[in-house]
Design a binder for these strands. Structure first.
Lengths: 338, 338
DNA sequence: ATTACTATTGGAACCGGTTCCATTTTATGT
DNA sequence: ACATAAAATGGAACCGGTTCCAATAGTAAT
């Protein structure tokens, strides 16, 4: 609990000098530097975050806002962000994601206001829970934000997103390339932008290959295990047979596989299944899951760094381009086409 | 950005009065109360966390330390803790769990010191990564800690753990009750206390029923999908046939099922598999997973509340007893015993 | 009306840093 | 050696709250 004044007294210098040593800014002679460092060591001195924040008007804390902070992928990502911030002694806090803006129209603004005012220096908005207009308003009065997995043209330099449209296209094309023409799908959550994009990209790939997918074989999911399971059962009940199923994420793909298997059918012999995300478990399912890998960590790191640059006038490196990767395993089978 | 002095000026009162209104402590006449509240509203005043922390010497932040902050179960739990803390406007931060004390002998102490000194008012130590002795030392100079999923006799009132021994016993007994006598297992991570306990409890149940499990049918896992998969393959390669497999957690159970299925065997007809944790996905696997549910959320909430009580002199309700729940699904089959 | 006591109120001092300026010390040039 | 510029240093003032005490207003009792 020693203060800068204790250090100054022990070292026989003024408090300004100690402060200079701490920040490394002003000029300090090597002799005094040594004295001060010794004193700090002897007193086990650590500067008070609170006092620093009070004068610097920086909380050295950034917040994350959004409901997408669940899911295995996202947790892995949070870890990476933590690591990135630790170096700068910045804290990461969550800004409750339960407040869904559609359910509580004003809740999001309120929780933002709280954060913005005194809680943290910047916010990473994860996902597209908030309407673009609202985000733009927020950005206007509070420019220290960064978007992760969301895209708004007007503030493109603060957006770190992935081309889900293209990835969806790759998935569709892959199933076509494997000889499938009767294809079903369980979409992601279509109320989110990325869920929509990957679905559109997927449909476009089919269309470009003169394959069309009947309405009955499109099941609207929401990324959960539950909808994956129910979706597969529902699709199987339709009259239209299909040989391949594209799912909006790995979770629904996994439970869809379970449903198919429980119905006595075999993956991939009867039905090929393709996922999206490449979760850890994807390689340990039965059969191992063909999926597409999103470089989520790199996106998150860049979003974090951009925010650090904004908040603390740093110039950390950032990337905006995130290539996808098709991961072929065994859940998609090549159809023999006569 | 308005301060308490701005509010005082606008309301025509002294700063002390505003402070009294803020804290709700001192006596304030209803007239002034109204004036001050109006002024605060007009200025959109929010008190500065930094200034408050500086004088109160509380950071209004608590930390989580431990490698166990991964895994679906744990993430769900973190959410609950967040919610609990939000009410008190306390922030939750992570104290890097990568620093494994065995890998970096001093790293844990160092990162603790940092946190303790100025970072946060209390710490929840999650899991048993740190040796008990070290925890006791820490507790000695820094009493604001709480243990989650770890037990140390001397500070039992700060420990919130689950009786994994008993749960392991229940699992063993369940397999026995279902008529199995040739049982294999893929353990959890035996270097952790809870992994060990559930294994011992499991063995004890078998032993109490005059069933013994040969060395070759015990595969030492580590909770990962990978070890579950490899473990199942390795066990199948042994010469000893078995009809049931107990896994240290759901993740390894799931990948074990995948391995068994990939080898052309059927769960539960050829081999019954039992998990441990009851992850979300457990009911959507094929077959749905028989497992045991740990009331982790409730444990975490109590650990959090206990810490709040310690740090901020509150008296929130706490519970210490956490019953388990056997969740029977379809991955364990009743054997016909002649 | 006066006294005695209680309820309100204002604001100085403080928490532990940073900033900035006046002052002192040291270095450089002639 | 002396003038002068440059480097190093000390500490007051400040950030925005809380705490505490002296001062003032209000109330009841005599």
């Amino acid at each position: 609990m020693s203060t800068i004044r204790d250090v100054a007294k022990l070292a026989g210098v003024g408090i300004g000098t100690v402060s200079r040593v701490l920040s490394g800014n002003g000029a300090v002679s090597s002799k005094t530097l040594l004295k001060v460092n010794q004193a700090m060591g002897a007193l086990n001195f650590t500067p008070s975050r609170a006092a620093r924040s009070l004068v610097s008007k920086k909380m050295n804390t950034i917040g994350i806002w959004g409901t997408e902070t669940s899911g295995e992928i996202n947790r892995r990502t949070l870890r990476e962000m933590e690591a990135e911030l630790k170096e700068f002694e910045i804290h990461l806090i969550f800004a409750d994601g339960e407040l869904n803006s559609s359910k509580y129209p004003n809740a999001s603004r309120q929780s933002f206001d709280k954060l913005i005012n005194k809680g943290c220096d910047g916010i990473i908005i994860w996902g597209s829970d908030l309407p673009a207009l609202e985000i733009l308003q927020i950005e206007n009065e509070f420019p220290n934000i960064t978007l992760l997995n969301n895209k708004i043209e007007l503030i493109d330099d603060k957006c770190f997103y992935f081309d889900h449209y293209q990835a969806g296209y790759v998935c569709g094309q892959h199933l076509i390339d494997k000889g499938h023409s009767n294809i079903a799908c369980i979409t992601g959550w279509l109320e989110t932008d990325d869920g929509n994009q990957r679905h559109q990209g997927f449909l476009c790939a089919l269309n470009d290959n003169n394959t069309n997918i009947p309405e009955e074989l499109i099941f609207e999911g929401d990324y959960t295990y539950r909808k994956g399971y129910e979706g597969a059962l529902s699709l199987l009940k339709q009259d239209k047979p299909f040989t391949a199923l594209f799912c909006g994420n790995d979770q629904s793909a996994m439970s869809a596989i379970a449903a198919i298997t429980n119905k006595g059918l075999e993956v991939p012999n009867d039905i090929s299944v393709m996922g999206y995300d490449d979760m850890n478990i994807a390689r340990y399912t039965s059969p191992p899951l063909t999926t597409v890998r999103i470089p989520f960590n790199r996106m998150a790191i860049s979003a974090t760094r951009r925010l650090l640059n904004l908040c603390y006038n740093l110039e950390l490196n950032i990337e905006y381009d995130f290539p996808i990767q098709l991961i072929e395993r065994l859940s998609v089978k090549k159809l023999y086409v006569p």
